[in-house]
Design a protein around this nucleic acid. Sequence first.
DNA 1: CATTAAACTGTGATCGTTCACGGGATTCTA
DNA 2: TAGAATCCCGTGAACGATCACAGTTTAATG
Lengths: 347, 347
Amino acid sequence: MPNGGVVKSTRRVTIRDVARRAGVSVQTVSRVLNDHPDVSDATRARVQRAIAELHYQPSAIARSLITRSSGVLGVVASGFQFFGPARLLAGIERQATELGWQLMLRVADPSTPEEYDRIAAALIAQHVEGVIWAYPELSSERERAFRAQVETHAPIVFLSMEANPGDAVLSIENRLGARLAVEHLIERGRRHIGIITGPLNLWSAHQRKLGWQDALASAGLPCTELQVIEGDWSAESGCRGLRQLIEQYPRLDAVFASNDQMALGVLHAAHQLGLTVPRDLSVVGFDNVPESACFIPPLTTVHHDLFALGQLAVREMHRVIQARRAGKPAVVSPLMLRPHLIVRESS
Amino acid sequence: MPNGGVVKSTRRVTIRDVARRAGVSVQTVSRVLNDHPDVSDATRARVQRAIAELHYQPSAIARSLITRSSGVLGVVASGFQFFGPARLLAGIERQATELGWQLMLRVADPSTPEEYDRIAAALIAQHVEGVIWAYPELSSERERAFRAQVETHAPIVFLSMEANPGDAVLSIENRLGARLAVEHLIERGRRHIGIITGPLNLWSAHQRKLGWQDALASAGLPCTELQVIEGDWSAESGCRGLRQLIEQYPRLDAVFASNDQMALGVLHAAHQLGLTVPRDLSVVGFDNVPESACFIPPLTTVHHDLFALGQLAVREMHRVIQARRAGKPAVVSPLMLRPHLIVRESS
DNA sequence: CATTAAACTGTGATCGTTCACGGGATTCTA
DNA sequence: TAGAATCCCGTGAACGATCACAGTTTAATG
């Protein structure tokens, strides 16, 4: 019966209650719970019946205190209003659940500096056995401070970040992806290719810009700062970006937008300006969000699989933790996933 | 120095180590940690220095065992590749962090039935003090089972769900929002208004359909099943939806798409079919995703604030838990947030 | 100066579980 | 039939903190 959420504040049913009811010791109940062999079938059945009758649920907290392993991974993420981070988080969650890990979620807001200390402290307090740093950018010094705090307690995996030597970073090849996109524009005969970047303090945004430069340089095409506008991932910034770009670089005949949302903004602005895509202007995006196939016109874009990256991160973490429990030293091995181009009608 | 993530497996620094170093009892250290008054300034300083020198981090796990309060809320969510759930989760996280709660995240995949039992068990095992059920739909019977398991341990808040009497549900007024959208189309002179719904087993999708019916009925306009297509929230389904709609109801002069992504699909299909929006066809969406202002044409849509809803949910949970700690019974009070219409050029 | 209150600090039990160890009953081997 | 081996089960300590209670010193009061 619905009771409006009134909780009876009864004491929690413990292993002791089960033991009493089954007429055995707590240790025997513990053995049943953990599938240890040294229990006769008869007592095992009795204990299991008591467990069911009392609706007993073991306490992971008490267990992790004594076993010194919590079964919890910490995830530091942010910006899941964006497609990438959301997919990443989904992949992490899926794999974690499959391998039996719980997830403690923190959202890092890169604004305040001492917040990272608080996050580290909170994760350590919760006895997380591993930390997955998903997406939020870290300056080198902050990263060092964070690692110094956390790493004596738990290994860390960094995702989509700059890889300093020795870092455990998993990522997609942003630079390659951008190069593929721009090379494609060049193949289609475009010669004056601008870029709208993400926030350039972000490593991934910076890498995509480098990929754009790579492609232009090796084709001997113009590559100046006049062709660059820094956006903020939002469609609106893509819209503004195109206007500015055309103003400061009128010969523009193609744009590489560093994500699909900004590409949408570019398409929008082009439409407003009376430019026909792709005749007057080619546009390529990055991310391959599901909607990009329904843009007007459908967007050529770079596909990458962040769901898989998230899964991979958890698997790596799992491997390392398991190995260490067995006493062997183990480190996360860095890895880069290759993106590929999806050609549609905007180019 | 980067060391590839090698963890020194030293014993954790405990309150006892701090006590020894500061030359006081563990109780005194505990008092310092919890800001209890009965400590002289001199000892307090000595203890704090010891804490700093040893890099001591208290164990939330040990603490929650004895205090019987974990400081952890469980969140069951899914589908954060969509704008709504992502905003909801972001709001929940923000408010939780502000109020000092940790978040245990589970993603519910509505496919398997016994998974709900596992989720409930996991949450109880982790001693969560409250559960926020964010978005994933529950059948009445599954809900009952879940509540029966969890509610003796922790209060539950349901978000965006059907409210059975007595349920603690927070939501936005989906039905009203849809009615606003359709009434607007009627005001603009449209008479043959179709709808592309979300999956109709979802309460929110069903409510939006009812809102559409409300508006048509009170205006005395046609309202038949021929005007209805069931989508799946994706842009692609909106695209297909419009084609089918026109086929089975050729007089169509406006479409209410139950989210912005499907509205994008509608715009796309209209463009392909040579229809000009809004001249030949008016389109209204639902959600007001940031991109919708950059659709072609910019989308008229229903704005609602799921971030605020998430914050609210945590605040309610907080209130209830605090009250119960103080021994007073308290229940979550149901609440509905009003959405409003954003008029742009697609209508 | 004795008495009482206030300020400060320590002791042992406790939360719910597993770990290390020990011991009795049963079966097997010589 | 004695000895060892196997199976089964229980006892006390431990994990890292807080709680309830008690004790000791210092300051305030009559």
